[in-house]
């Protein structure tokens, strides 16, 4: 699903590469944690997957597309197949839960009828059926993140990218979010989650890829956060 081959990314006006000779292969349906300290290259990795940046060298394949040769006007096609969730939720404050999720479908050209059917379904999946008409400001952090996940998942992308999705949440709430991501993963979606949260990584026992200064220093099938040796 995601294949990095000897990928190096050096940002303009810097000498040190943010990612250096990284090769990673994530299969369809996998759940992968991406761990490492700030500045280790996690965000660069995610930006490359979303084609917000281009690799300086090496090749990247995402959902069957070679991102090196993908033309700009085809990037939206790629992003339709990659759902994204962020630490700061990125919800639209003036829109209700329903409208926030519907926004994604509107943008993709779904009809009102489809939207009226699909949105309540996905909102129920994330456990917010009762709060369809609330605005983000009236929801807790965990609930807001559920809305963000619903929005990312409503178009059934093949890949879900989550950048520190529990970074702003307390441990109890985080567990709920992880259960939700796990459930989405079980339905066949490949999930890549960047995180600092060691307890979550330790509990989930999924594949862990650890980055340090742009290098992959660990790729472990059933890893824990603090593993060093």
């Amino acid at each position: 699903m995601i294949r990095f081959e000897h990928v190096t990314k050096t940002y303009a006006k810097t000498d040190k590469p943010a990612l250096s000779d990284v090769s990673i292969d994530v299969a369809k349906g996998e759940f992968v944690f991406l761990v490492g300290q700030s500045g280790s290259g996690k965000s660069t990795f995610l930006r490359l997957v979303l084609r917000e940046e281009k690799a300086s060298s090496g090749t990247i394949h995402v959902a069957g597309k070679d991102l090196g040769t993908l033309s700009n006007w085809k990037v939206p096609e790629l992003r339709k197949q990659v759902g994204t969730v962020f630490q700061d939720f990125r919800l639209l404050p003036n829109k209700t839960v329903f409208e926030n999720v519907a926004f994604a479908l509107h943008v993709l050209g779904h009809t009102k009828k489809e939207i009226a059917r699909e949105v309540p379904e996905i909102v129920e999946l994330v456990g917010l059926a009762e709060k369809l008409n609330r605005r983000p400001g009236e929801l807790s952090g965990g609930e807001q993140q559920r809305v963000a996940i619903a929005r990312a998942y409503v178009s059934r992308p093949a890949i879900l990218i989550a950048d520190e999705p529990t970074g702003n949440l307390d441990p109890g709430t985080s567990i709920g979010i992880m259960k939700l991501l796990d459930r989405i993963n079980r339905e066949g979606t490949t999930v890549v989650m960047a995180t600092h949260d060691s307890s979550i990584v330790d509990q989930m026992r999924k594949r862990v890829i650890e980055l340090e200064s742009g290098h992959v220093i660990r790729d472990q099938v059933r890893g824990v956060y603090g593993y060093t040796g």
């Binding site: 006007w73 992003r79 759902g83 943008v107 990312a152």
Partner: peptide, 16 residues
Amino acid sequence: RRETTVMKLVGASSFS
């Protein structure tokens, strides 16, 4: 910018 960021993320074309 919030709206346009979200549109971009869910795969809207630059034209739309």
